[in-house]
Structure formats: structure tokens, C-alpha cells
Design a protein around this nucleic acid. Structure first.
Lengths: 124, 124
DNA sequence: CTGCTAGTACGAGAGAAGTCGTACCACTGC
DNA sequence: GCAGTGGTACGACTTCTCTCGTACTAGCAG
């Protein structure tokens, strides 16, 4: 149940045009130390984990995550994830939708996503 | 070639008494986000990688790594690695020797050490 | 045009982390 | 005793990061 070719869901594209992704590092430019830094924050770790485990639609807006933080904080964290190469963001009209770069990360750092998916958030 | 029980070398203990490890988190207390934070620094990532790939003796002093930094900086980084649960440090007389906690990390975060060992430092 | 929505950018403040010098300590060899 | 070694602790400084408020924008509904 864990190790098919890609155990994580990559939701199908939605109907209609698919916008270009926002600027992001190419697969070969993703740096392990940057990925580690992005994942050192529990909020961001939780975001990626939730996307891996619960992604239902093609991708999800920032508010879907139910994070109790001001919008500017969310912008900060999602950008950190995107610039590290962990998520892809596309602009659909008003909303910006997020998706884990499953193929790129599995190719570059095999096993990493499994660690994230298995992470247990600290009970605060 | 990658997934024997433990593909990474755990050097045998040296002759004589083995000192107690310096304070460190128990296996179950190692937090993924803390591990990620410790590995977000290229110097520390390189230290763990070098230990994984080149460890010959039981373990190695801080100077074995050939890092061109003042001693106080090295103390700082090695403590960060120890407190995150990545390395074990034992005091042998004068020198403090370092060892990756291979079993604990492999049990807790399987595949993580492989990622570190495969890391390519940025050509500065 | 008037909202409302889902975001952005900017900037300020607080705290954490990296950098390092200095002083110090314990042990070894002479 | 004295010098050298392999470290530590402390403190200062700087830089980064997280936090958030505020102001703003683009697009949609009416």
C-alpha cells in the first residue's frame, strides 16, 4: 500500500485551461538543504502532509487548509514552499491553487514524501 | 544495493571503556522538523554525509572533518546535530567523538540517511 | 458601480540562528 | 612546571525568519 510507482495522489487537471505555474525551481535546481529548511517549520510540514494525504480536487486554495493565521503569513509560507520546490502554484482567476510536486520530488529525493506523510504533528 | 538492513557503516566500538553519550533525545523523541532544521545548514549536512560515507574508525573528532571554521563555530554545529538527534557524541579523554545514530534514524525516518548520503554539496 | 473574495506587497518588530573572538579547562608530553 | 591539543562556555554582532498589520489589486456577483 505504500510503494507503488507513486503512492501519492496526483489529482487530475480540472476542466478548462491550466494556467502556467508560478516561478519555481526546475527539478534539477531543487536543493536538499532548501527543502529541509522549508520543512523545518511545522506549519509548512503540515501543509505538505495534508496535501499528500487529503488532496481531493486538482489542487487547493490556501484557505482550504484551515490555517488560523493572517493571509500575509500564509502567503509567506506558501511562497517558501514553492521557492524551495515543494509545491507548485497556479493562478486560477482569483485563487491560487497548490499541489505537491510529487514526480519531481520522488525523482530527486526518493522516500522524502513518505517521511512527510508519516509525520505526526506535535500535540500542542 | 541500497536497502539492506543497514546500508550505512556503524563502526565497532574502540577497545576499552566506552563513555556514556552526551545528552541527546531518545529515539522516540527525535522530531522530524528538528531534524530538518539541523540539516538545512550545508555545513551540517556535509558533516553527516561525510560520516555516513567515510567513517573509518569508531567515530571521529570534530577536527577530522577538516572544516575551516573556528572551534567555537564547530561546537555550535555539532551540538545542533546532537540535540536534533542526528549524531551521538562521546567524550574520550580530551576529544569528543561523533557518530551518526544510524539505527535510530533508520527506524524513525527510513530513507532519510540515503538522501543525506546522496546529497551533492553546492559547488561554491 | 459596489461590494466581496482570495490573494499580493511592503514594512516593522521580535526572536532565533549563524559568525566569531576571547577566556578557560583538562589532559598529554617534555 | 610549561606548552600544545581538543575541546567548552560566554558574549557580541549580524543576519535571517517568523509574525502580523496595513494597504492594495484582480476578478466576480449583483
Amino acid at each position: 500500500m505504500t510503494t507503488a510507482t507513486t503512492p501519492f495522489r496526483v489529482p487530475p487537471p480540472p476542466p478548462g485551461d491550466v494556467p502556467e505555474p508560478l516561478p519555481e525551481p526546475a527539478r534539477d535546481e531543487i536543493r536538499l538543504e532548501a527543502v529541509m529548511a522549508a520543512l523545518s517549520d511545522p506549519l509548512r510540514l503540515g501543509v505538505v502532509r495534508k496535501l499528500l494525504l487529503e488532496a481531493e480536487e486538482y489542487d487547493h486554495t490556501c484557505t482550504w487548509f484551515g490555517l488560523d493565521r493572517p493571509k500575509s503569513s500564509l502567503t509567506h509560507h506558501f511562497r517558501a514552499l514553492r521557492e524551495a520546490g515543494l509545491i507548485r502554484q497556479r493562478q486560477y482567476g482569483l485563487s491560487r491553487r497548490n499541489q505537491v510536486r510529487v514526480d519531481d520530488l520522488e525523482a530527486r529525493f526518493p522516500g522524502l514524501l513518505r517521511l512527510i506523510a508519516d509525520w505526526q504533528p506535535p500535540r500542542a
